[in-house]
Amino acid sequence: MVLVLGRVTSINVRKVLWALDELGVAYTREDWGLPNRDPRVPEFLALNPNATVPVLIEEDGSSLWESNALLIYLAQTRGALLPRERHELGLALQWLSWQATELNAPWGYAVMGLLRKMPGFDDPQKIADSTTRWTAKMDILEAELARGRPYIAGDDFSIADIAIGLSCHRWFMTPFDKKPMPAAKAYYQRLLERPAGARWMPQDYG
């Protein structure tokens, strides 16, 4: 049985758990990551020197980290959740990378200040800057989803939808005055209709 180390309030941990559920892979999970369990201890650092979650441990004891890499690894080793057609495969990997490199960075301050209410993240100007930059990235996603495909890479659900879907969840869960994003909203609702999507995009945290 696969073991996942990480707290479920982490969007990156939920990426992996959602993929495992979609793939029907049996797993267990241990809470790691602040404030639950500090990963900066030798036991954890031996598995991931970055002290970040998630970490996935296979049945043979081998371990891997970095959430989007884990999505690709699970899809390839379990034979599902990646398109077979070459261009759609490229699109899935493109949007998976975009989520990590472009969409993640802008939301940091706004999420910490508005969603998680963390002390020290209450500067109105920094919150405004964060939401402005985040909205610009969501505009890119909205334009892509408005093309009318049911999923980000085409007709079939893929690991890219897990990453993008959780990002949409975070967008809609963070309380601030947002511009309408009808295509993103419809896409998000479509992903919530999947049992694993509903499980890992709950209304009590983003």
Rank of each mutant, 00 (worst) to 15 (best):
Y151D: 11
P180H: 14
A153M: 12
C168S: 13
D177S: 01
I152H: 14
D161Q: 03
K179I: 12
L166D: 07
A163T: 10
P180I: 04
C168V: 04
F157P: 07
P180V: 12
W171G: 06
F172D: 15
F157Q: 00
I162W: 05
A163R: 04
I159T: 07
M173Y: 11
I152Y: 08
S158A: 11
W171C: 07
Y151C: 11
A160P: 05
I164M: 02
A153L: 03
P182L: 10
A160R: 06
D156N: 11
M181F: 15
I152T: 09
K178Y: 07
I162C: 03
P182V: 03
A183T: 09
A163G: 03
D155P: 11
Y151T: 01
G154E: 08
P180L: 05
A153D: 02
I152S: 02
H169R: 01
D155H: 10
G165V: 07
I164R: 01
D161W: 04
P182Y: 00
P182A: 13
I152N: 03
F157L: 01
G165I: 06
P180F: 06
C168P: 03
P180M: 07
Y151H: 10
P175G: 02
G165E: 10
K178C: 08
C168Y: 12
I162H: 12
K178F: 01
S158R: 05
P175A: 04
A163V: 15
F157N: 05
A163N: 07
W171P: 05
M173F: 06
D156T: 13
I162F: 10
T174G: 00
T174V: 02
K178W: 09
F176T: 06
A153R: 10
S167V: 06
C168R: 04
I164V: 15
A183G: 08
F172T: 14
S167Y: 09
P175V: 03
S158F: 11
I152W: 06
D161R: 05
R170K: 14
K179W: 07
H169S: 12
A183L: 13
A160Q: 14
T174E: 11
C168D: 13
A183K: 01
S167G: 08
S158L: 01
L166S: 09
P180E: 13
D177L: 04
G154D: 05
S167K: 06
